[in-house]
Design a protein around this nucleic acid. Sequence first.
DNA 1: AAAATTACTTGATCCGGATCAAGAACTTCT
DNA 2: AGAAGTTCTTGATCCGGATCAAGTAATTTT
Lengths: 252, 252
Amino acid sequence: MTSRKVVSFENIKVACKNCSLSTLCLPMGLTPEDIERLDSIIKRGRPYHRGDHLYRGGDKFHSLRVITSGSVKTYSPNEDGGEQVLGFHLPGELIGLDAIQDNNHNCSAIALETTAVCEIPFSQLESLSSIMPSLQHQMYRLLSREIGQETEMLTLLGKKSAEERLATFLLSFSERFKQRGFSASDFFLSMSRHEIGNYLGLAVETVSRLFTRFQDEQLLHVERKHVQLLDIPRLYEIVQGTDRTKSSQSRI
Amino acid sequence: MTSRKVVSFENIKVACKNCSLSTLCLPMGLTPEDIERLDSIIKRGRPYHRGDHLYRGGDKFHSLRVITSGSVKTYSPNEDGGEQVLGFHLPGELIGLDAIQDNNHNCSAIALETTAVCEIPFSQLESLSSIMPSLQHQMYRLLSREIGQETEMLTLLGKKSAEERLATFLLSFSERFKQRGFSASDFFLSMSRHEIGNYLGLAVETVSRLFTRFQDEQLLHVERKHVQLLDIPRLYEIVQGTDRTKSSQSRI
DNA sequence: AAAATTACTTGATCCGGATCAAGAACTTCT
DNA sequence: AGAAGTTCTTGATCCGGATCAAGTAATTTT
């Protein structure tokens, strides 16, 4: 009778096979039996609160982590006290891949809100992947995808204007929320303007002004962290630098 | 008698076990037997000439490539005809890792000078790595290292000044040449000023002016592609933003 | 609920590096 | 060797976005 109640809130997502993220996550494309084996090495701890570190630069590396709810910022603390924000991570995303190289975290990861994660001890994952070719393949794909994403970010920081950067940022969240079954046009950003600016290589003031400008131009409505995208197609035009409102006479 | 002559110029580096790069390259840390097995899947074609493409964005991916001599530029062609230079690659460096994710090259690679490469068919490498844990481990490390390097580049493009960027660039080559047994302070750059600028997110003119300035400040001597670093310690100070010549009164 | 702190916005000014322009040095072609 | 095309350098100007400054709104502390 009461035994039903044992399946408490904390245990609902206790297995990959029941997890709605499995199509985005490490188990993607694995057979149910393989998922079961992967599942057996995964640890699910208690949630982190806003501001808690998942790990810090310098920590010994032992586990990769998948966000299962909430969101996380990764950043690399640089010599003079400042930091470079490296990414914002949503449920289903794997973090810690950069630490494999020397078994050390070179970056830090901090929860932006209440956040749950799965921990995957890397040495066990490695052993498992050497007897499970499909898992090995998935790991190679994920590592490669990470490289590809950073490559896009290099182009963003190397060549794009401030407004192209912010539009890219917003559409990235739009797409990722959509993938996760949320609205592509109405969402909350869990990070501050300062963190957005740091990530995009812009000053806070520039980010703030751009939000205001985008709103004036009817591209979106923004109130604090709540963003509603009103004209996604035009945001895409801005991303490509094809925005007719200003580039019509340039570049010929 | 004449059979000795069969070991011609082209065949000297025909095996990993004889290759001076093996400590920097994929075989790093493998046992001689494992190197032998890896060697058996590697293909060595004829050299590329300056301007030849190793692959282009959109090509089907089948092989990773290791530069064995010469140098290569990777770049991502972007929509409007321009390009973002992603990296300059020296002997021992592995390229193509970003293509694993979807079996397609998203970037292009072009020889900057006469260049030889080893081709490693990825599907064979994958099979081999699933029966050779040490190779699998090495692959994970290399992929992770690539992520770490791109992360550093993100910080460079997001936060650093033009002079910090060029100093970082020069010291990166200095270190890599040194690793390969060449001079750390006297070398030839195989890429143009334009390509350096593109890579560093700077205009050609800025790069040219910085070379002139660095020379005026006795940091280096430069003549066309020939660079001699005269004050490596001070270049390191510039990289860290700790250069006393200008930051002494700032940031307090 | 008031006070203090932190986050965000908006305006004014400044500056690093882009862009424009032109000449010089080098390379390639014929 | 001379012509034509590149690449590089140097100077002048311009502008996007940083920095400085101040005010306002939200959040946290007490």
